[in-house]
Write a protein that binds this DNA or RNA. Structure first.
Lengths: 219, 219
DNA sequence: CGGGTTGGATTGTTCAACAATCTTAATTGT
DNA sequence: ACAATTAAGATTGTTGAACAATCCAACCCG
């Protein structure tokens, strides 16, 4: 047995929250599905009290909807949510890039995720392509060295991944962006900030459109 | 008895969370003070389980620090936190202003908060000056019509108010900005976006410096 | 067929208990 | 005396059961 699956310092609630979070992002729950406290508690082998803590956690992350006296439901981000997420993304990511210095360590991480995405594409592992794409943008936000802004961005990405989880085939949603990620990274490495910002803006507009189109296709 | 203190739809946990939140912002707890579960539960007349839900709520809002197996502590934002908060503010607020249209309804709300701040200053009610100042910036972020960005910004403001709560005299921290708020509003009403953006940037830099100075003065 | 009623199910909250972990103070060895 | 160790006490982590409050759906009655 490897070093993985160790003691796991985190509390039970935190651990289960991470599990459910992963399931949500993988689309293992239907959108807007109700999550009963009793069912979920017994399914994960924890008490109802602990499960409620888990629900509060995930609700504050925007992955669950909580309606008083009615229960907890899987968040079902629709077109309006996608538009809003991209609106916020444009502001945050452009602001982060504008603050970037040419030798910021996050640029190297961006470069690394591009390489990994290319490797994943070669293997046809589209799930990993999507994950590394998220990491690419996450690294981009780190350019501005603001943990709080990065945390806010994490929430946006998590919600976006929830949208992806509801779609059947996400391969077309990520493939075109591998090359664009590479181009963006190069601009940053050359210190061409304003050029990078305008490219990023076009990038996000295009990405938003393809996500919206996929969402409509699904109905 | 007035209509106030009604049924209060919200759950007990939510209500107590709002109470404690208000206390935190008013500086009724010392920075980094430990909040014992038993003490707080009996103090507010709720069970320990419910209190833990409250703590999770406030922790996710950045007002409390949670250390596993150690307990919950009042967040103590230092200089690094202030710098980070303003870094994020600059990006979010500038992005919001850039997206503003001349007739956006939020501009009227900004104008209204300026008037209220002037009234509060006339009465020497510095607490209300601070609150309306927060509302001013909150309205500014609404210019970009993104609930998610606004939610992220709310977290930043809440944490900043926590900083203010730790200071003794905040009157000097808000007074100079009433006039600046008025000037900014006018620029937006005239549709002078780029001018407004650069003014805002200088505004935030200045504000950050005065907050940092006050923080150092307190030691 | 529509509107109120009732019963059952689910959530909201509390309590008491025990396990796991941290803190503090006493204890021990040098 | 001093450092490390151990033991005791307090606090957090988690559970199970219980009951109140609320919601939901089937039922009854006009």
């Amino acid at each position: 047995m490897t070093k993985a699956a160790e003691d796991d310092e985190r509390s039970l609630a935190t651990r289960i929250a991470a599990d459910i979070r992963g399931m949500l992002i993988s689309g293992e729950f239907a959108a807007a599905e109700k999550l009963s406290e009793q069912q979920m508690a017994s399914r994960f082998g924890i008490s109802r009290n602990t499960l409620r803590e888990v629900f509060r956690l995930l609700t504050s992350q925007g992955l669950l909807d909580y309606i008083p006296n009615r229960g907890v439901f899987v968040a079902a981000p629709g077109e309006a949510a996608v538009v809003d997420i991209y609106r916020a993304r444009r502001i945050i990511q452009k602001g982060a890039v504008e603050a970037a210095s040419r030798d910021h360590p996050a640029i190297a991480r961006m470069r690394a995720t591009v390489a990994e995405a290319e490797a994943a594409r070669a293997e046809g592992d589209w799930r990993r392509v999507g994950t590394t794409n998220m990491e690419f943008h996450r690294a981009m936000v780190d350019l501005c060295d603001s943990p709080r802004l990065a945390a806010a961005f994490d929430l946006l990405l998590a919600e976006l991944r929830l949208v992806f989880g509801q779609l059947e085939d996400t391969s077309q949603l990520h493939e075109p962006y591998i090359a664009l990620n590479a181009a963006l990274t190069e601009l940053l490495e050359r210190g061409a900030l304003s050029r990078a910002v305008s490219e990023l803006d076009a990038y996000l507009v295009k990405s938003q459109h393809s996500v919206l189109a996929a969402l409509r296709r699904r109905g």
